[in-house]
Design a binder for these strands. Sequence first.
DNA 1: ATGGTTTTTACTGCGTC
DNA 2: GACGCGGTAAAAACCAT
Length: 333
Amino acid sequence: MSDTTIRTSDAEQTRERQSIESTPEAVSTDEQEANENEVCPECSGSLVTDSEHGETVCRDCGLVVEENEIDRGPEWRAFNASEKDNKSRVGAPTTNMMHDKGLSTNIGWQDKDAYGRSLSSSQREKMQRLRTWNERFRTRNSKERNLKQALGEIDRMASALGLPENVRETASVIYRRALDEDLLPGRSIEGVATASLYAAARQTGTPRSIDEMIAVSRVDDMEMTRTYRYIIRELKLEIKPADPESYVPRFVSDLDLSEEVERGARELIEDGRQAGLLSGKSPVGLAAAAVYAASLLANEKVTQSEVSEVASISEVTIRNRYKELLEAKQVAA
DNA sequence: ATGGTTTTTACTGCGTC
DNA sequence: GACGCGGTAAAAACCAT
């Protein structure tokens, strides 16, 4: 009696286990991939990658060839489609470039439903009212409105300066922090936005000079530098002095010079670094001088005034620096 | 506020095209 | 003569104290 009961429950368990283990195959098909072009070093049997355990295993002898590969799949398992819907938690990416991180409700302007059909006139009126209120709630308080405007400004200036998206992201984060720490009162949105972008550009290694910044900003350099200092002090941002090399590519391309010049300029700067003559000198001046000197060495001469033009630095500074750089190169060589 | 350092401004002389 | 370049002196800007 007891024997039979045990046996039936055993059988049930086995069946259950089988059903559990067999269903995932149906949902996620790529748990084991065959590696056609590779064979096992031991028995030359075919290899399979087990993405769940991050291993590459021989199908015949079981030898583990590679371990710790990255499993890019989800950490959960789903046994049917509805579970997959439930457990999956991916969605649209958030971005700091929008004042609400792109997470708020957005009602489209087309008067179409989800199937693309036009709405009835009463529905249209309803949607229009919803749009109005949605917009009011979305930019309800002053901070939100402030942020919205500032991010618009950052975007505009970044475009004008040809700064990539990651810089805008960084600038947005900085601005958001400044706003959170109540650094704004007494300062203009423009000023803080400009300072944020300037700081972000330097942090991400694609610096723009203060001159360039104020050229596209609506604030003057006094306010800009004052705000910038304030921001980095209050937010404790650590900004290293700009590396002269980070200016080189832009100058080179603005002057239509070759890669050889760019390489030469970098080497000159490196030699100058070894000789210890970079500290205290303006990075822009160094970069401009290095580009000028490299253009001479590569027989692609550009004039000092041309370089001073694109670098917005005086010719005198270029002269002084490039002499020093060439001397340092002599020593290094 | 101050002093030291760096950059800019303005000017000059030289050589070349 | 215009231009590029090198140099200088003085003014201005910048930075740490």
